[in-house]
Design a protein around this nucleic acid. Sequence first.
DNA 1: GTATACTACTTGCAAAGAAAATCATTGCAC
DNA 2: GTGCAATGATTTTCTTTGCAAGTAGTATAC
Lengths: 156, 156
Amino acid sequence: MKQHDVRSHLPHQLIHDVYVLLDDGDRRALAHTNLTPLEFNLLLQLDLEQGQRLTDVGAKLLCVKSTITRLVDRLERDGLVRRNPDPDDRRAQRLILTPRGAAVRAEALAMHNAAVERRMGLLDAEEQEQLTRLLLKLRDGLAADLAAQQAIEAET
Amino acid sequence: MKQHDVRSHLPHQLIHDVYVLLDDGDRRALAHTNLTPLEFNLLLQLDLEQGQRLTDVGAKLLCVKSTITRLVDRLERDGLVRRNPDPDDRRAQRLILTPRGAAVRAEALAMHNAAVERRMGLLDAEEQEQLTRLLLKLRDGLAADLAAQQAIEAET
DNA sequence: GTATACTACTTGCAAAGAAAATCATTGCAC
DNA sequence: GTGCAATGATTTTCTTTGCAAGTAGTATAC
């Protein structure tokens, strides 16, 4: 850091660095199951019985619909999920796990949990709590900021 | 969250969410200058006089060399940077800013700084300090964990 | 000084994701 | 009911990125 060193940049930069490290670790933890973090997160949303619509999943995973379509294409090709027609809306598809998908999900979840525990264990319980509190505040504030920015853009 | 709810998951998840929000904000802040966050970060590394080699920049930006090659292709096409031959090593290229690149960088930096200040200002000075301390500890621990994982992989 | 290993960068290829256009269906106004 | 806007999903196209292979130059071993 040099002439562009503003105090707030340090936490900003650190969040980036920590995110990169965590994401890399997630990939490693999931490598055995051939899932990317995004695929894993999608599986976590699902359920063996009544499924969710693609749009809902997209909203939770913060990505656009076309991304979800492709993602589900892959997972369906690999036999982990299935698209079921929605009985109430013929446009919609309900996503459910196959038994194979549930097994893969369970295995991935176990490895992921172990990895998360190990790495977040670098902070003791109190520190984790502090961190959680600070990040919650930041996240909610940022979400509000984003909404405000979008409102400004919508005007113009 | 349901059956996969492990306590450490909350800060882990929050870091992800905050990262996404910050990254989105960075893109917005830089949108006027037509730079992506990665391009902006590359410009920040550079200097009007003696340049750095692509490999060095890649190490700082945590991406592979081919990514840097193409990134620089774009920036050079747009006239923001120039590849200068390295006098000491004919394989290497030294990257320098053009005057135009320096101007764009200054403008982007101003907007970025303002956006970072505004958004990190959601936390007061003490909170920012706490957050910094926790993230530093986490980052260093994660980096060590990563190195350990890589050592294990190298063995097999 | 020649062979070998290493380094700096580039290129070809494939995967991931986003944006915009499209299609089918639904729901609302009247 | 008919027309029209909104919604759910997909397809097409484009950009960005990583990986692996390739080229050119450097350094080391002998």
